[in-house]
């Protein structure tokens, strides 16, 4: 994480200065990509982490600084280890002969599937195409390399295929305070279809993606715009919806797999409150 590098290079002599410097750095990071929720959530979490240590008292500043640096590195390490933990937790839920629908390309979900494959589980994966970023094609590429049986669907075939599906897996850009998730466009509709057909919807996300947002509806989030190639020329005067993310409310999610355990959506808000209150 870049922020721990800031601490290391910082010349600050008091905690206050250090904190201000850190704040500036995290703001700079956040502004570099306004749309990335996990980035800003990660920054917030790191800041919280730092301000919490400060509450523990240290006599001299240098000791505190080295301690902060340690913690910063540990934080980065934790985030990496998180994926493995999540994959471990998911293993009990993937049973032999099941069919998993995956929407979007998520490294966590890939790790989950990878571990399931190395555990000699037999399962099929349906990947949605994931327009406009073709995330499904990327994912199926990876799966083919691992020797996992996979099948590509166009995004509009989700309801058609849901009959055969046993569970739906998503990653997440961000997990919001209500317990819902913000993820790639199409997550919401996939979750709706799964919900109406009584299929469990699982989300795999590291807990640094927990964000202090509370979107009330779809328009309530900063849109991440993507150019969309329709393949044909769009006539002038026709508007194009270019947002690439949507918000899935918590009632459509069954469980969240995070590195702090298997959670129901309602736990997320409790965790966030515990941390920031």
């Amino acid at each position: 994480m870049a922020l721990s590098a800031v601490i290391r290079t910082s010349e600050a002599t008091t905690m206050m200065e250090l904190e201000i410097e850190l704040k500036r750095a995290s703001d700079a990071l956040k502004s570099s990509d306004l749309t990335s929720i996990s980035l800003s959530a990660g920054c917030d979490l790191f800041m919280r982490y730092v301000t919490r240590t400060k509450a523990l008292e240290y006599e001299d500043f240098d000791a505190a600084k080295t301690r902060l640096m340690e913690r910063g590195e540990k934080f980065g390490e934790l985030s990496l280890r998180a994926r493995k933990t999540i994959a471990m937790l998911c293993q009990d839920f993937i049973f032999d002969g099941c069919t998993i629908l995956v929407h979007g390309f998520s490294r966590v979900v890939l790790e989950v599937l990878k571990m399931a494959a190395t555990n000699r589980k037999l399962f099929r994966v349906f990947c949605t195409e994931g327009r406009p970023d073709s995330t499904g094609i990327r994912l199926s590429n990876e799966l083919a390399k691992l020797g996992i049986h996979s099948k590509l669907l166009i995004d509009s075939a989700v309801a058609y295929a849901m009959d055969e599906v046993d569970m739906v897996f998503f990653g997440a850009d961000g997990v919001v305070e209500s317990g819902g998730i913000i993820n790639m466009m199409g997550t919401y509709q996939t979750a709706l279809v799964a919900h109406s057909m009584n299929k469990p919807v699982y989300v795999a996300a590291e807990c640094y993606k927990f964000a202090r947002l509370y979107p009330l509806d779809q328009k309530d989030l900063a849109p991440a715009l993507r150019p969309i190639d329709f393949g044909v020329k769009v006539p002038p005067g026709v508007e194009v919806e270019t947002s690439a993310r949507d918000y899935t409310p918590p009632q459509y999610l069954t469980l969240l797999f995070t590195d702090i355990g298997v959670l129901t959506p309602s736990v997320v808000s409790d965790e966030l409150i515990k941390l920031y209150l």
Binding site: L78, I260, E271, L275
Partner: peptide, 28 residues
């Protein structure tokens, strides 16, 4: 550097289910 009671509460918190909170506090 803390009162025994504080140590006890810290240690007790490790018994609890992991949470964001303890994740951050986990190192001390």
């Amino acid at each position: 550097g803390l009162s025994p009671a504080a140590v006890a509460t810290a240690a007790r918190s490790t018994l609890r289910a992991p949470s964001l909170h303890t994740l951050l506090e986990g190192i001390p």
